[in-house]
Amino acid sequence: MIPVNADTRLFCVLGNPVSHSKSPLIHNQAFADHQIDAVYLAFAPSDIQKAMDAVRQFDIQGVSVTIPFKQKVISFLDKIDAEASSIGAVNTIVNQNGVLSGYNTDSFAAIAPLKDVQISGKTVLIIGAGGAARAVAFGIHAHKGNLLITNRSQDKGRALAARYNADFYPMEAIRHLRPDIIINTTSLGMTPGENVLSCPEDCLTSETLVMDVVYTPLETRLISAARQKGCHVVDGLTMFIAQAAAQFELWTGILPDTKKMRHTILTHPDFQTQ
């Protein structure tokens, strides 16, 4: 690791909760691999406005944004990328000489693992209506998938559904659906609530493709149930690494080795896969 000094560039992730995040692990390793004098930290602010003031005050060069700030942070940026603007959520901030620009790498990361799947014409159920759901919905819609939205807050869910002319279903009503693809974009099933099943098993058949954005634990209850039904599954680490690699490229101009990023997480002693 490069020693930290007064010239070390600072990067961070802003989220609450954020203690589970593996972003510091993979970004710090990538900085070391490419001999970049930088350090990446995790912060859990209660007030996103004050956090963004700190980003400016301390000249933090790049920021990952996660739950619950992906939509709220937009008000405190100087510029926003066209795709992030269309999505209505930001997960990446680049600080260039004090100008804070917002981007969204989640949409690309959600679609990348599905590149071998013919999304067009497929029925895709998105669980959630937050920042990650917005990014996933944007990507699925762009690839002409037929969207279904479910969410605990019906107002938020209906608003996202209306944005893409999709059908909304209350969560208690989805067990009768048989979508081709199910994508959980919520924190349901994440440690310490790993016993929560984000989608009824009734929705799953052996033909269903199931994707979960949760990666702690790697084998969520949804992923486990899907495997038992013979579904094709995409774990949360796949999307997480894809969006992180795209972030690193925005900050440094370097696309890191995603296979090494995954290996770094899976072999770390603190990572729990059960």
Results as ranks from 00 to 15, higher is better:
132 A>C: 13
133 A>F: 14
136 V>Q: 07
137 A>D: 11
138 F>E: 06
139 G>R: 05
140 I>N: 07
140 I>E: 07
141 H>M: 13
143 H>V: 09
144 K>W: 13
144 K>G: 07
147 L>Y: 13
148 L>T: 08
150 T>L: 08
151 N>K: 11
151 N>H: 11
152 R>S: 11
153 S>D: 15
154 Q>N: 06
154 Q>P: 00
154 Q>M: 06
154 Q>H: 09
155 D>W: 02
156 K>T: 07
157 G>W: 11
158 R>I: 14
158 R>Q: 15
160 L>K: 12
162 A>F: 10
163 R>K: 15
164 Y>W: 10
164 Y>G: 08
165 N>T: 12
167 D>V: 12
168 F>S: 12
168 F>A: 13
169 Y>E: 06
172 E>I: 10
177 L>R: 08
178 R>F: 06
182 I>S: 05
183 I>V: 12
183 I>Y: 04
184 N>V: 04
186 T>V: 12
189 G>P: 08
191 T>I: 11
192 P>T: 00
194 E>I: 03
196 V>G: 04
196 V>L: 11
204 L>T: 06
204 L>I: 09
206 S>Y: 09
207 E>T: 14
207 E>C: 09
211 M>G: 00
212 D>C: 02
213 V>H: 00
215 Y>G: 01
215 Y>M: 00
216 T>S: 01
216 T>E: 01
218 L>C: 02
218 L>H: 01
220 T>H: 02
222 L>S: 00
223 I>V: 07
223 I>C: 01
224 S>Q: 05
225 A>E: 02
227 R>E: 04
228 Q>A: 13
228 Q>G: 05
231 C>S: 14
232 H>P: 08
232 H>V: 14
233 V>T: 15
234 V>G: 07
234 V>Y: 05
235 D>V: 01
237 L>G: 02
237 L>I: 02
243 Q>K: 06
244 A>H: 05
244 A>Y: 04
246 A>R: 11
247 Q>D: 07
